[in-house]
């Protein structure tokens, strides 16, 4: 067991990828809080957690200070997607996605720091995306938030590395989650209202590995970054996408 004796909090912990992370952490011996808006009855101890609610974040880490006394692993996985070009994105939508994907990561990390310092090997794992490097159509605000996450990750790694806190970002490609399904059904993707079943073979064929990812694939890497095996890994953006972004666009010739 790679995480025995460790304590972990996962924001977005009942979402597609977050659930898989909580399950893996528990299987590896960690105590896990699945911090999210709604309970899904999955792995980890559910705790209501809204990353835009500063008072609730403070209260959560106050409680953890009393119960655990330290935090070894923080996974910032809460995030939303808006499937629009900038022209069709309202200011309200723009502010909302930044509030969750970027400001939420800032607030959660900020108030977790005192507890992370009490760990002898703390690891923070942020959720970036390959969309922080290259664009998917009709996802402008989402792409921008993920670019911000990448920069924030490096900044946090620089600032808090001397305190023994590692900070990395995971940049998934296409992973089979409700968010991906929503992307395929959105107008912005140009998928013509198709669903993942109708598109799945085409999607797979574009990947060098001829498959898209599963939440388990992502949880495997999160687990490694959370563990002490990754003790020299910090400040990096870990793309995990089946080789998708290693290629130029795959034209049909």
């Amino acid at each position: 067991m790679m995480l025995e004796g460790k304590t972990a909090l996962v924001t977005g912990g009942t979402g597609g990828i977050g659930s898989a992370i909580c399950e893996r952490f528990e299987n590896e011996g960690a105590q896990v809080i699945a911090a999210d808006l709604t309970d899904n009855g999955g792995a980890g101890t559910f705790r209501p957690f809204d990353v835009t609610n500063e008072a609730q974040i403070i209260e959560t880490f106050d409680d953890l200070s009393n119960s655990w006394g330290k935090l070894d692993i923080l996974v910032n996985a809460a995030g939303i997607e808006i499937e629009e070009t900038i022209e069709n994105t309202t200011l309200e939508q723009w502010n909302k996605i930044f509030a969750i994907n970027v400001t939420g990561m800032f607030l959660t990390s900020k108030y977790a720091l005192p507890l992370l310092r009490k760990s002898d090997a703390a690891s923070v794992i942020n959720f970036g995306s390959y969309d922080g490097y290259i664009a998917d159509p009709g996802l402008a605000a989402y792409c921008a938030t993920k670019g911000a996450v990448h920069a924030l990750t490096k900044a946090m790694a620089c600032d808090h590395g001397p305190e023994g806190i590692r900070v990395n970002a995971i940049c998934p490609g296409y992973v089979d989650t409700p968010m991906l399904q929503s992307f395929f059904e959105g107008d912005g993707s140009g998928g013509g209202g198709g669903n993942i079943e109708s598109l799945q073979q085409a999607v797979r064929d574009v990947h060098p590995m001829r498959t898209y990812g599963t939440p388990t694939d992502i949880a495997n890497l999160v687990n490694w970054l959370a563990s002490d095996e990754a003790r020299y890994a910090s400040g990096q953006l870990w793309v995990i996408d089946g080789g998708l972004s290693a290629q130029v666009q795959q034209m049909k010739l």
Partner: peptide, 8 residues
């Protein structure tokens, strides 16, 4: 600048 995967 675009993803290699373009469902459109």
């Amino acid at each position: 600048a675009a993803s290699p995967l373009n469902p459109g």
